[in-house]
Design a protein around this nucleic acid. Structure first.
Lengths: 238, 238
DNA sequence: GTTAATGGTTGATAAATATCAATACAAAAT
DNA sequence: ATTTTGTATTGATATTTATCAACCATTAAC
């Protein structure tokens, strides 16, 4: 099958047009022409270089962020080190607890590649949410879904040991982030470790074990899942 | 200071009157007279015996639950065992992800003592949410707050070892559940273990260590925090 | 009062994990 | 090509934790 890459789509739809997000993010499809205009006028497109902070936990959530291009990590910076809750890819709205709970970001988002975000002032979004019931429902549902996914992943990690944690994380990367069995990570072992919630040396060792059992193949940042089904089993049983 | 117990309050305010919840749960105070009437007419008071299931994860969330009397555990039944996310005491609304995300309960709630709940059909609540903006905001905020607390606790447990997990859990029980330094648990070690995310033997041993260091004192289900500040330190540092 | 049953504790053992230091590797710079 | 720098791996060691089986305590049943 013919596979369109990110760049083609971007040049087709023009990134600075809300049609871009419309075509990708469900909740935006319920906005009226006027509401879209309002967003179009108030939004700001911002480019981030690889490694740059998109926003930081503890700061005020002034904007609703639509992630349009690149890859980012959503992480919680804890006293004992960072935990990566999830990876963010286009098009995803990043509206954690800030928008509906209090005005504070409860985690940080950092670009892993050069990235582009569309920032919409929270006031505008709140306003539209107030008036457009359909949008509101879907928008809130969206936020809740992402929060639930995070919570569920944390509970999963908490109830498993290293092999299970790493197996599950690799499956996640393959299924939900890169959507292929053979992918090149846009980040180093440090990030993979924070994502799996495992020590860095421990990660290396378990990866080696998987490799010796011919379940995966690694070369630098390239990872290939040779036997995804066995990996699923390891995930399940611990 | 004179301390009123649960029973006194109940007989004063009459449990089957919405005034009871009104006096305790913030979001209810923003309802109009008509909305309260509507709830009053459609609500059902249900008594649960100790150990009974209030609702079970996976089932459809047909009601919004206001927990009026007793103590309950909110737990996630996972393949590897249950995790207790939090304890529920009067008056708390239990509206996890079910109400705003999909119609399914994502965790179970079980009574730890004899308990009374007020069940309000979700349709009624959704209806009022639709119309009453102030209530909606506070109600959603409430749900988000509880979800965030759970997420944050999971991340905390995940980043700490046994002593830190147990210290943190004891502090939580003392500060947020029983609101005193010397309390009698309404549940056994099995539950405490699921709450701390630690093996049962491991829990015993760490409690013993704390006791030998004269940080706590235990007698059966009675626990007294002798040096809460040291406990806080243990929590912080792992 | 004795017996059974349940729940909690304890010590010994085994497994898993983190940590440390040394090494290997890869990428970038000279 | 060679050095330099940052990153990744590896083996040895030390902690930590779970598990198992035995034991003790408390309560319930007879």
């Amino acid at each position: 099958m013919f596979q369109q890459n990110e760049c083609t789509i971007l040049s087709d739809l023009k990134l600075d047009n809300c049609g871009f997000c419309l075509g990708r993010s469900e909740s935006f499809s319920l906005l009226t022409k006027e509401e879209l205009d309002k967003i179009e006028k108030s939004k700001v497109l911002v480019n981030f270089k690889k490694g740059e902070t998109i926003f930081k936990q503890g700061t005020t959530a002034t904007h609703s962020v639509s992630f349009a291009k690149g890859l980012a990590k959503l992480h919680d910076d804890r006293p004992n080190g960072e935990i990566i809750y999830r990876f963010i890819k286009p098009v995803e709205l990043i509206n954690g607890y800030g928008l509906l709970f209090n005005e504070t970001h409860h985690y940080s988002v950092t670009a892993l590649t050069d990235a582009t975000c569309c920032l919409i002032p929270v006031g505008i979004v709140a306003d539209i949410m107030e008036k457009n019931t359909g949008f509101r429902r879907l928008f809130i549902k969206d936020i809740q879904m992402y929060n639930f996914l995070i919570q569920d992943r944390l509970a999963d990690l908490l109830s498993k040991r290293n092999p299970g944690r790493i197996a599950g994380s690799l499956i996640n990367l393959s299924k939900n982030v890169y959507k292929t069995n053979k992918f090149h990570c846009d980040f180093g072992r440090k990030e993979l470790q924070s994502y799996c919630c495992v020590s860095q040396d421990g990660l290396s060792k378990t990866l080696k074990q998987f490799e010796e059992a011919e379940i995966i193949k690694t070369k630098g940042r390239k990872i290939e899942l040779l036997k995804p089904k066995i990996l699923e089993k390891i995930w399940q049983f611990g």
